[in-house]
Design a protein around this nucleic acid. Structure first.
Length: 258
DNA sequence: ATGTCGCCTCATAGGCGA
């Protein structure tokens, strides 16, 4: 079994004890982190738990990292297609023969702004890469915070997200296009029609207590990896703790090669 | 419009991003 988890921490500094405690309890093989929110990355804390790490950081915003209990090779730290894009949102490694890609896709609010255009362009660039990845023999997992609510079922109430960038037709059709390439949404493929399954809840108005959330953290699996899909689980535990991130971890379980 | 976080600074309050 090979377990890969993903968690948007909303500051690794503020959530260090949350993530180390969770790693000890759940022991995933790989953990993808997003929204580190700072240049410093506490690799020592993870190394002492048996995880090597690689991080892409910037001041104050964004930031992604991959932790692994197995040797990993860094392939890329930027998403190709725009040399002027300096955001820390992309990290590609190979571990255990799997291409593991960690993304923090742009939020894109407000709708119609430059940030919205950046989001759509970023998704177009991602799609081009995901096409290329299907053409080689390395099974591929693209995971992280996609900042896209794929379907109406993925939010508690569509009308309250109608004006949000995460719910607009343009990013949603681009997300569906990734599935049409042949990638599998790990969670939804195993839990079709299951309502109320979310990975993010706003901090305000007790959104978590009322389960008013959205499903925006995803794992997309290439066909050969989808054949190995055993399970996909959202762990709501960390979101219920004191001083939580607004996201909670999602874990995908893959069978070993025969 | 608002709610609540976390980061940063022309810093101890306000702006930005989410």
């Amino acid at each position: 079994m090979f377990k890969v988890a993903s968690w948007n921490l909303n500051s690794v500094r503020s959530r260090l004890t949350h993530v180390t405690t969770w790693l000890k309890a759940r022991e995933p093989d790989v953990l993808l982190l997003q929204e580190l929110k700072g240049t410093e990355f506490p690799s020592g804390a993870f190394e002492s738990l048996g995880y090597e790490s690689v991080a892409v950081t910037q001041k104050a915003y964004n930031g992604v990292a991959i932790l692994s209990r197995h040797p990993m090779k860094t392939i890329a730290k930027t998403l190709v297609g725009d040399d002027s894009d300096s955001h820390a949102r992309f990290l590609e490694v190979i571990s255990k023969g799997i291409r593991i890609v960690n993304i923090y896709l742009p939020n894109g609010n407000p709708v119609g702004s430059d940030k919205f255009a950046y989001k759509l362009a970023w998704m177009d660039r991602l799609k081009r890469q995901m096409i290329l990845w299907l053409k080689d023999s390395v099974p591929t997992l693209v995971g992280g915070d996609f900042n896209v609510i794929p379907e109406d079922i993925d939010c508690h109430k569509p009308s309250s997200w109608m004006h949000d960038a995460l719910f607009q037709p343009e990013p949603r059709s681009r997300y569906r296009a990734l599935l049409e390439l042949g990638y599998t949404d790990a969670f939804r493929s195993l839990h079709p029609n299951e309502v109320g399954q979310f990975t993010f809840w706003d901090y305000f108005r007790q959104a978590f207590q009322h389960n008013r959330g959205i499903r925006i953290d995803h794992f997309l699996l290439s066909p050969t990896l989808a054949d190995r899909l055993e399970g996909c689980e959202i762990d709501k535990g960390p979101r219920a703790q004191e001083k939580p991130s607004d996201h909670t971890p999602i874990i995908v379980t893959l069978s070993d090669l025969p």
